[in-house]
Structure formats: structure tokens, C-alpha cells
Design a protein around this nucleic acid. Sequence first.
DNA 1: AATTCATGCAACCTCCTGATTGCATATTAA
DNA 2: TTAATATGCAATCAGGAGGTTGCATGAATT
Lengths: 111, 111
Amino acid sequence: MSAKRRSRLSQAAPIFAALGDETRLRLIARLSTDGPLSISRLTAGGRVTRQAVTKHLHVLAGAGLASSARSGRERVWELNERQIEAARECLDGISAQWDRALENLRKFVEE
Amino acid sequence: MSAKRRSRLSQAAPIFAALGDETRLRLIARLSTDGPLSISRLTAGGRVTRQAVTKHLHVLAGAGLASSARSGRERVWELNERQIEAARECLDGISAQWDRALENLRKFVEE
DNA sequence: AATTCATGCAACCTCCTGATTGCATATTAA
DNA sequence: TTAATATGCAATCAGGAGGTTGCATGAATT
């Protein structure tokens, strides 16, 4: 398990790190409800500058959580469903590991 | 939804941020399999100093993911199951929102 | 062609984070 | 009590993160 789990952990960390910012979570929430959006639309109404939004989007892209494509004079961003699923599955894994540990402890006590 | 979701997001961000570090994920994995452990045990075999481990543990504690208690001359750390569940549920929420958005889009196209 | 709107690029700044080292304190063991 | 073990506290440091501003470029509009 060691090698496999180790690599899974090292891949999961950047994903969680990308999710660990309120502004980025808001962008994700926005993109998940309102669909693909341009940078200016994502910026409008927000509290930070367009550049800040752009940086955050690139962080999300770096973690594989979002991707973009140019369309005319704007760049449209959308979420990457698979990677979000991957993060969820990783947390499921942690929970499962936790449950397994509890179960082992229970067995040990009962024996 | 706005206010409710906004607060949920602002609470979720620190949790994800705490999970967004490989060293901390390793500590979590270790604690979830080997149960409550002292700082020196968590440090032994690792790559970073005891102080670094201590700091990481405090980050986890700050996010509510772990807690500790003094036992004799050592301090024993353990995971906080509920908070990990909370994080998982938040990701579930994001996935659900995503699914809902997709479904709405589908309906819109089909109409 | 001139204007306007949407981005891209780059420099800069402040604050936080991960990590270290050195020393102090508390607790157990001899 | 003395030595050894386990932890706590503080100072320090390099690098990265989040954010801003200013200017350049690319594309649509008139």
C-alpha cells in the first residue's frame, strides 16, 4: 500500500490546497451553477480585481479543477468534473481508512 | 441560499487548506491507521523535525480535524472524525451542485 | 481606422507558511 | 537528585500566496 497511497496523497494535496481558499470556492460555486463564464463576468460583482480572479482561475487549472478556452475576445472558464470527483473520492478514502481503523480497534478489543 | 452557502464556503475553505499539504495528509493517514499517537512517534521515521510536525498538528487542530491531550510527559494526538465527514459532505455538495447544473442545462437544451 | 471591451503580462508589495535551530520546562527513570 | 525523554516556546529565514497597479495586445464595433 505504501507506494500507492503515498503517491495518491501527493496528488491529492495540491487539489485540496486549490480548494482551500474562499475566493476560489466561490468561483467554483459560481461556475458550477451558472456554467461556463468569461473572466469579466466572473469578476463582476466580486470583491477582487480581474487579475486576482485570473490568478485564482490559474490555480484551479493547475490543480486540474478548471480549464479554459478562448472564444472571440473573451476566455471562457469551466469546471473539470473529474477532478472534483477525484477529490471527493480521496476524502472517501480517508473516511474509509478511518472506519477501517475503528473496526480493527473494535475487533482487537473484542478478542 | 446565498447567505447559507456563503457561510458554508467560508467554513469549508480552512478545512481544505489544512488538507492541502502532503505532510499533513501523511499525518492524517498515519493517525487514521495507527490510532492516537504522541508527537515523537509521529516524528520518528518522517522527514521533518519534531517542531514542523507539531506545527502541522496545530494547523489540523485549528481546522478542527485533530485534537490532542496530555498523557504523562507526552501529548497524544487523534483525528476528529466529524470534521473529516464535514469536508467530505462539502465536496458532495459541490458535486451535487455540479450535477444539478448539468441537469438544468440538459433540460434547457431538450426543451 | 478609431474606439471600446476583454485579456495578457509584468513588477511590486505584504503577509503567511513551512521549516529550522536553540534553549527552557516538565516528567519519568535510575 | 541526576540523567534522559518528551514537549513547549521563540527567533529566524526563504519562498510562495494573494492582491494591486500600469501598460501592452487582441478582437469586435461603428
